[in-house]
């Protein structure tokens, strides 16, 4: 494989200037002692290279919390096509890249969502390696190594950044930086491999994923759901922070005279009480227990429809943002796995 390059860290400023010349650069920025957020950055010093999970995942760049999708005036209906400046997302970790993969599949499935696609196509994504903390469990979800969703992926190998190329657009960017980068040598490759091996051994959080599917199928009626559901506040914090939660609501905003207006799409949460209610005051998921276990199943068991993937990428955001302290996915999975062990032990 020849598509590996290195950049001496001292030259990163100059590489950053090349990014800025192409568009608006967004990267993780420290916003409090413990939290980070993807923000527009104007200088390298603003970038928090040490950041793990940002408060909101970078899905917001392709799928904003609120966006106008249709406008109407008189009897003319128009698709809203906003001017989208070219954006460069720097510092996207493997879990979030896997999240992009899932969002791409959902919004790309026919009929494809061009509101999402337009923003996705006007972007360049540069991934960045990271070291897990006690909440990360991408390893259990099989998303710890970047497999796509990026144009370039940067691994920190000490004195240099190691660049893997994901797309022709990424390659073209490196070509424009050919004064700065050089082809990776054997030594660089060894250090690259060492980094990923060390990282793989650094996970302290996780579970054995092999039986996840069957455990969730079998434990649909487990009392754990009742216990967790009774403590859930239905605040919906766990969904906007998730890199793969894509559910939305569509709302109309009319002008005062009623002659014109727009149709807006807004992030919604399956944890809100009315999410699955229909006419006749009938709610298909009336209690927090119903909603919480639906969410867990969707994340960890995944779709029964043809997509066939789980929709958790192991970023740990839901765990750290749950005010009730119940959204500890790893703990819940371990308890579900344990409860089956216990039963099989008893019936031996």
């Amino acid at each position: 494989m020849n598509n590996c390059f290195v950049l001496v860290k001292e030259l990163f400023e100059e590489f950053f200037a090349l990014l800025q010349a192409r568009g608006v650069v967004y990267a993780p920025v420290r916003v409090s002692a413990q939290s980070f957020s993807f923000r527009k950055v104007d200088s390298v010093s603003e970038i928090a290279f040490e950041a793990l999970r940002t408060i909101l995942p970078p899905k917001k760049f392709f799928y904003p919390q609120q966006e106008t999708i249709i406008t109407y005036e008189g009897d003319t209906i128009r698709e809203h096509e906003p001017e989208i400046p070219f954006q460069i997302l720097f510092g996207v970790h493997p879990c979030d890249l896997a999240g992009f993969g899932i969002m791409d599949t959902i919004f790309g499935a026919e009929p494809a969502d061009n509101h999402y696609r337009r923003r996705r196509e006007k972007s360049l994504v540069i991934g960045l390696s990271c070291m897990p903390d006690r909440h990360c469990f991408c390893q259990s979800m099989g998303t710890e190594c970047p497999r796509g969703g990026y144009d370039l992926f940067v691994t920190d190998i000490g004195d240099e950044y190691f660049f893997s190329v994901g797309t022709p657009a990424g390659f073209e960017l490196l070509q424009s930086a050919r004064e700065l980068v050089s082809a990776a040598t054997e030594t660089h490759r060894d250090r690259y491999k060492n980094f990923w091996n060390t990282r793989a051994d650094s996970f302290t959080n996780g579970f054995s994923p092999d039986n996840l599917h069957s455990v969730l199928d079998m434990e649909w009626d487990n009392e754990i759901w009742t216990e967790l559901g009774q403590r859930c506040l239905s605040c919906g914090n766990c969904t906007p922070v998730c890199p793969t939660c894509y559910c939305f609501d569509l709302v109309d905003i009319a002008s005062l005279n009623g002659e014109s207006g727009e149709r807006r799409r807004e992030w919604d949460s399956c944890q809100f009480s009315g999410f699955a209610s229909v006419a006749g005051d009938f709610n298909f998921r009336p209690t927090p227990v119903d909603r919480l276990k639906f969410w867990y199943r969707h994340k960890l068991h995944g779709f029964d429809d043809p997509y066939g993937f789980k929709t958790c990428v192991g970023c740990g955001r839901c765990t750290v943002s749950c005010p009730a302290g119940i959204d500890d996915l790893v703990d819940v999975v371990k308890r579900l796995q344990k409860s089956r062990e216990r039963v099989s032990h008893v019936t031996k």
Binding site: C247, D249, L250, D268, A276, F294, R297, H298, F303
Partner: peptide
């Protein structure tokens, strides 16, 4: 059209 998630039954 299979995007908004409101109609989920199980995983479908």
């Amino acid at each position: 059209i299979g995007k908004c998630g409101h109609c989920f039954v199980g995983g479908r």
